[in-house]
């Protein structure tokens, strides 16, 4: 696999941005659902598949250094990677970015079974109820993320950021 310098550097900086946003921007909390601002970065995959590395590394470091479950939550990284790969697969056939963001939201929501399984293994909480509650939280967070990322896309054009001059 050959990754050019710009893609490498942009993804490195994007991962840092993910961590900075996670650490410093106060989470928007609605009831018991915590909206981690950086979660919305998952939608960047819709605009260019080259964002994959930056998002994955950002999630990896954020979980490693900042999650309440410490390194154990690294297992949760697989949820992000699998979801991103599925959305990338849809991206081959669907070109409408808004539709793809909705699909991305559904994919991330459905894949919360991985988090539920992780919690089920770790603390033996009921799998199905945990899946439903964590999926509900993810659905709300990712839906809000569509609005934020779309608003940002209108100004920043995420599909062109790798082609800067």
């Amino acid at each position: 696999m050959n990754i050019n310098i710009r893609t490498l550097v942009t993804n490195g900086v994007l991962a840092a941005l993910y961590i900075a946003a996670t650490a410093l921007v106060a989470p928007i909390a609605f009831s018991n659902i915590q909206f981690r601002l950086s979660e919305i970065f998952n939608h960047l995959i819709v605009f260019d598949k080259r964002y994959f590395w930056g998002i994955a590394i950002g999630v990896f470091f954020a979980n490693l250094f900042m999650s309440t479950l410490g390194a154990y939550e690294l297992l949760g990284l697989s949820q992000t990677i699998i979801s991103l790969l599925i959305t990338m697969g849809f991206g081959v056939f669907i070109k409408n970015k808004l539709v793809l963001m909705v699909i991305n939201t559904v994919v991330f929501t459905c894949n919360m079974w991985i988090i539920a399984l992780m919690l089920n293994l770790a603390i033996e909480v009921p799998f199905f109820i945990t899946w439903m509650t964590t999926a509900a939280g993810e659905l709300i967070v990712m839906s809000i993320g569509i609005a934020v990322i779309w608003a940002l896309h209108q100004r920043l054009r995420f599909d062109r950021l790798f082609d800067y001059k």
Binding site: L8, A16, A20, V25
Partner: peptide, 29 residues
């Protein structure tokens, strides 16, 4: 053909920029 070196480089760049971008985020907010 997994890009091991590239992955490590992206991680290193990320670690380098975390403090810079945290300051930036703080300043902007």
């Amino acid at each position: 053909k997994f890009p091991v070196h590239e992955l490590a480089l992206m991680m290193s760049i990320s670690l380098r920029f975390i403090p810079t971008l945290m300051q930036e985020t703080d300043k902007i907010s």
